[in-house]
Structure formats: structure tokens, C-alpha cells
Design a protein around this nucleic acid. Structure first.
Lengths: 343, 343
DNA sequence: GGTTAGCACTCGCGGGGTGAGAGTGCTAAT
DNA sequence: ATTAGCACTCTCACCCCGCGAGTGCTAACC
């Protein structure tokens, strides 16, 4: 039986534990929150919460600590999303307007802001389209057989790749080749480019194929254009001091394969309402090393299907109300900026 | 008086300590190295080394540990640079040939190889010219007032920047503007571009200025195109477990401002012989947080003044012989590759 | 003089004991 | 249903102590 009072109690336990990082006992709870009950009653209620699997004690005769399911109930039903002050909103907005009008720069900045404000690790991917299309293509000779292929996507992202050609080309030849290909390829996505069966020179085929490959590899969550910050703050948390497991955690985060650490697909339904925030708590995370952590994630989207991910990684004992509010605000802000500059 | 025997002894102490991470005592030394002397003699010699400031004991009645100056003498005079096996050389070379022919990719790979082979952190910057010159320039419209400026450098590096223009341009106008500017700007460096006093449209001036700015910011050791790997391995070292200072170390490394952590200028004279390796040991490092670490650095250079930095960061108790050899080999290898593909 | 055996001395480290403190569960009274 | 009281449990910090590794010194030896 989960009475209203027990929920209240759980809420207090979570918030107290988030604050102090110490198991919270019945007595200290009554004290701090001026509960109109005695510690004995609280103890009974706590025992009930423990039966429900919402809290646990690290050892007999210690206070209670929320379990993963406890946190889950908390974020689902009990948490108050913190309201950001106008002041803070202004400051952040200002920081963005001062930065260069550059997608990557924005993402980097967003990660930095999240990390410092929340004192947790933050990961932000630059927005990109799930099915990128070519806007423009250019070839620049590097030396005889080697050329640099530059592809500009509709979304204003620039990809590059060096190509080995079958014969030497002059810059003029490369330029005119690029111009010809531009007409064929502009506005197309990877599949459409691969499909085109045009009889042409070997060089043209090489370039077309390379372009398609580039697009394909770009539509995965590529490791490169994502920014992580604040790992330092994360490791300062008391639960991560001097443990063996921490090193492994760092290992996972360091592999730039962040998609592993931040499963975007999970929870954030593609058709979710705007700025839907998903939360993965401790053991819910598929990757072992991450099970001491919670991950708060949201997507943000620009026009034309541009999508990126904002996410905060902290200990399960994180301030969910604050983190969710902040992540949500950042996502609306990024969307707004994207809308203004890239429509 | 630094007799030959004492130097020998220091060498043994360093190597033993590197191996075991334990203070090394007189007795264990005689045992392991079958010295034709008794432990008592060794003790006397050790006391002498201590007087010279080359070793120290963490506390009375513990074994000796090399000091920073001890390590310094070691690397200067005693160290044997480890010979890499042909097998290893081949494996590494193979890894490079399998990777994409991409400067950034190579740098990333180099960092990964150094990190995993040496079990230390590694930082590699992509090679770039101290005074970059424009090879090619392109403008792509993003929307009415906003255009993407793409600058390809001689060294096959691509820079980008979005520009706010004073009036709307069509793509055709942008293209022809780019073509005009190309003629003016190609082969020039930042200073030369700024200097050109050509009467032209506001848009042209904007673009020219932006190009110059891009070049300027690119010639600093920009944070972006450098790759770090293996921080995990670093933190696994016994000296970094459970310390408060470690977190600060991580902080320095994490700020992408690696030039702070890896002072390239120091020690590596610009005119140094080929593949000169510089070593910074513990307290010699200007940054406080790094004083538990040693840094092994070398430059590598391609043709036309392309230069990058390879560097390994580990505890002072690192295997200098191995690290130096490895860093040196990687630098020759990178140079060779650069020479083959970008001449 | 350099080398060595012997010996007293010094510390750090790990184990066991202990007492304080925080917290619990249970019971009986309100 | 709530609460006061109480016995009980468990951690943590502290101290003590003995072991072992290592040192420095001295006196004898080659």
C-alpha cells in the first residue's frame, strides 16, 4: 500500500539524500522537515517503503537510501521541476549570442554550460539530419593523384575526405568535374546518389561513390561532432572517490562512442511531444559501467529534421529537478537559435 | 662525487621503481640484480645518492625513490632507449595504412596507438603550418543573409565559418564572389590578405576579413584538432588512486587547452635535430597540477612547414626508455606518411 | 680505504579490540 | 494509529601492538 504519506516521505528521503550523500535516518528527517510525527512512526513507514523496494539500507542500522526504483517513482510522480530564474535564463542566452554563429560552437558551449551549472558531465551532439542531403560539392587538388572532396550539407555541415584518383588532374579539371557533379548531386541523399546510373568517367564514379559514403557515415551518430564536458565535476562526487569502478566508467565515457553511454533511442520516442526529457536511472542503463549513473537526455530539433541530443550524466544521486529543468531549457534555447539562423 | 657505480645504482633504482611502484631497498636490489656487493655497501652508496638529491625516502626506514632530478639524470645519461621490434613496427605501420588517408584520422590513430601501447595518456595534434595559406575558398548560402565560408588551406585542412552578410545573396552571386576572391586570395597568408587594399563591395570586404581571421585563429595551436586518448590508463596507475589531486589533473587535461598541459615550446628547440624528443619531469612542469606527471614530447613535420606534436603523459614513474622510443618511432612514421601523401 | 657482518632502531601497515554514535525493530502504553 | 522506550546492530575512528622491511652505525676484515 503506497499511501500519500509514504510518497511524501520518499520524496523527502530522495531530496535529503541528494543533498547530503548520506543515508538518511528517521530522526534527522523529523528534525529537518519538522514532520508532525515521531521518528518511530517514520521508521515504520520507512520499513514499508523498504518492502516496496523503494529504499534500502546499505547495512543494518544505517539510514535509508533510495533504490533505483525509488528514484524512478520520484521522477515520475514526486519531483518538482525547478524553475529557472529569469536572471539565469538571460545569462545563458547572452552567452550564446556572444558565441560564434556556428553549430559546433553552440554545441560545445551548451555542453560547457550544462557541465558547469549542474556540476555533472554533459554531452551535446551537434544537430544533424537523419538523412543528410548535399547542398554543394567541391574538389581541391592536393597533389597529382590526391584530391580533397568537400561536401556541404543542406544543414550547413561540412564533410571532407581525401580521395585517391585514377589519374592526375589539374585544378581546372577538378573544378569542372565538381561543377558537373554538383548539378547531378545537389539536393540528393545517399541512397539517391548511389542509385543514379549515369555513364561517366571513372573519376566521376569515384567521387560520386565517396560522396554517398560520406553521407552514409554522417547520418550515424558520428563520434566527432559531439562535445563532452564536466567529467571532472562528475568524478568529484563523493560516490566516485577512490573506487575501482570509476576508472571503468571513465573508460566508457572516453571512448568517443558516446552513443553507447547515452542511448538516445531509449525512452525518447521520435514522435514525443516537444522537449520530452528522458531519464535513465542507474541499473536501468544497459551498459554495466554506467549503472552508478543516471542520464538525463532530450532531443532538440531545428528546421528540416535537424536533430541533436543534449544530455547530462551524473550519479544516480543527482538533482533531477534541476537537471531536467536545465536540459529542457537548453533544448528550447538551442531550437530557438537554430530556428533564427538556419531557416 | 658521482662515481660510475653510483650512477649504475641509480639506474637500477629507477628501473626497479618503474617496475614495481614500490620504494626500493638495498636488500631487494642486491637480490634482483645479483650485485657483487653486500646490502650494507649499497646502503652507503644510497646515502650518497640521497646527499646528491637524486633519490629520497618517503619516510625514514623505507626504501629509496628517485627524485625528479634523479629521473633527469637517468634520462640524460643512463637510460637505454628501447628498441622496437620489427614486428611491432610492422603492426603499427599496417594500422596506419588501413586507416583513411586523413590528417585528423591519422592523429587520432596515433594517439590511440600511443595510449594503448604505452598505457599512458597521449596527445597528438594534427599537423598544421605555422603560417597557413589559402588554397581555395568557397561560399555557400545558408539562408538570405547567412553564408557559409569554406577555406581550404594549402595543407589540405578545411576551415569553416558562417558569415552574416549585409544583404541577401543568391547562390550564383555567392559563387561568383567566391571566384573573384579566389584569384585575389589564393596562396596568401593572413597578413597578406589583411594588407590588400582593394576597393570592393562590403560583402567582399567582410569575406576577406573573415578569411584572414580564420587563418589567424588557425595558426595558434587550436584546441580542436588535437586528440587525447588513454586518460583511463593514466588514472589506473597506482600513484593516482584515490587522491584528491588527481581530479585536478583531470581538470587540466580536460580543458582542451592542452597547450597548457603540454608546453611544446619548452625544450624542443625549433632547430632541433630530427625527431628530437623532449622530456619534462614532474616538478619541472610549470603547471602545478601536472607535477606528478612527466611529459614526453616530440614534433613531427611534413613538407612545407607542416608541423604537429606527439606527446605522452604519464606518471613520473614512467618507462622512459619505452616511451621515448615509441614517440620517436611514431614521429618518423607520421612524417613518412605525410611525405608520401602530401607532397 | 673500501667492504661487510651485525645490531639496534625506525616506521608503515594490518589486525584486533573498543567505545561512541547513529539508527533500527519491537513492544507496550497512549 | 501513534509514540516512548529499550535492546540491539553495525560502522567508524581510534589506539595499541607486533611484524617486517629497511636503515644507519660501528667494528672487524681484506
Amino acid at each position: 500500500m503506497l499511501t500519500e504519506r509514504r510518497k511524501q516521505l520518499l520524496q523527502h528521503i530522495v531530496e535529503e539524500y541528494v543533498l547530503t550523500a548520506q543515508p538518511v535516518g528517521s530522526h534527522s528527517l523529523v528534525d529537518k522537515y519538522d514532520l508532525p510525527l515521531s521518528s518511530a512512526t517514520i521508521r515504520n513507514e520507512m520499513a514499508a517503503l523498504e518492502d516496496e523496494g523503494l529504499v534500502a539500507q546499505p547495512h543494518t542500522s544505517a539510514g535509508r537510501v533510495p533504490t533505483d526504483t525509488g528514484y524512478r517513482l520520484y521522477v515520475e510522480a514526486l519531483m518538482h521541476e525547478e524553475e529557472l530564474t529569469d536572471d539565469l535564463r538571460q545569462t545563458i542566452r547572452h552567452q550564446f549570442h556572444q558565441a560564434a554563429r556556428e553549430l559546433e560552437e553552440w554545441a560545445r558551449l551548451a555542453a560547457a554550460i550544462l557541465a558547469t551549472r549542474l556540476r555533472n558531465a554533459a554531452v551535446v551532439t551537434t544537430p544533424h539530419s537523419p538523412e543528410p542531403r548535399v547542398r554543394w560539392l567541391e574538389l581541391v587538388g592536393v597533389h597529382d593523384y590526391l584530391a580533397l572532396l568537400i561536401v556541404v550539407l543542406e544543414e550547413a555541415r561540412v564533410l571532407q575526405q581525401t580521395l585517391m584518383l585514377d589519374q592526375p588532374f589539374t585544378q581546372e579539371e577538378l573544378t569542372s568535374l565538381a561543377r558537373r557533379l554538383n548539378d547531378i548531386v545537389a539536393g540528393k541523399n545517399a541512397a539517391e546518389i548511389s542509385e543514379q546510373k549515369i555513364v561517366s568517367t571513372p573519376a566521376e564514379i569515384t567521387v560520386r561513390q565517396a560522396t554517398a559514403d560520406l553521407l552514409k557515415s554522417a547520418d550515424a551518430l558520428t563520434p566527432e561532432p559531439s562535445f563532452m564536458d564536466g567529467v571532472r565535476g562528475l568524478l568529484k562526487q563523493p560516490e566516485f572517490t577512490g573506487g575501482e569502478r570509476v576508472v571503468d566508467l571513465l573508460g566508457v565515457l572516453e571512448e568517443r562512442n558516446l552513443s553507447k553511454a547515452i542511448p538516445i533511442s531509449a525512452g525518447v520516442a521520435d514522435d514525443a511531444g516537444e522537449h520530452q526529457v528522458s531519464i535513465i536511472i542507474g541499473g536501468e542503463h544497459p551498459v554495466d559501467e554506467m549503472q552508478l549513473c543516471s542520464v538525463v537526455t532530450t532531443r532538440y530539433g531545428g528546421p528540416e529534421g535537424l536533430r541533436g541530443v543534449l544530455s547530462v550524466v551524473g550519479p544516480t544521486r543527482m538533482n533531477y529537478g534541476r537537471n531536467v529543468a536545465m536540459v529542457r531549457y537548453m533544448s528550447t534555447l538551442m531550437e530557438e537559435l537554430l530556428g533564427v539562423y538556419f531557416t
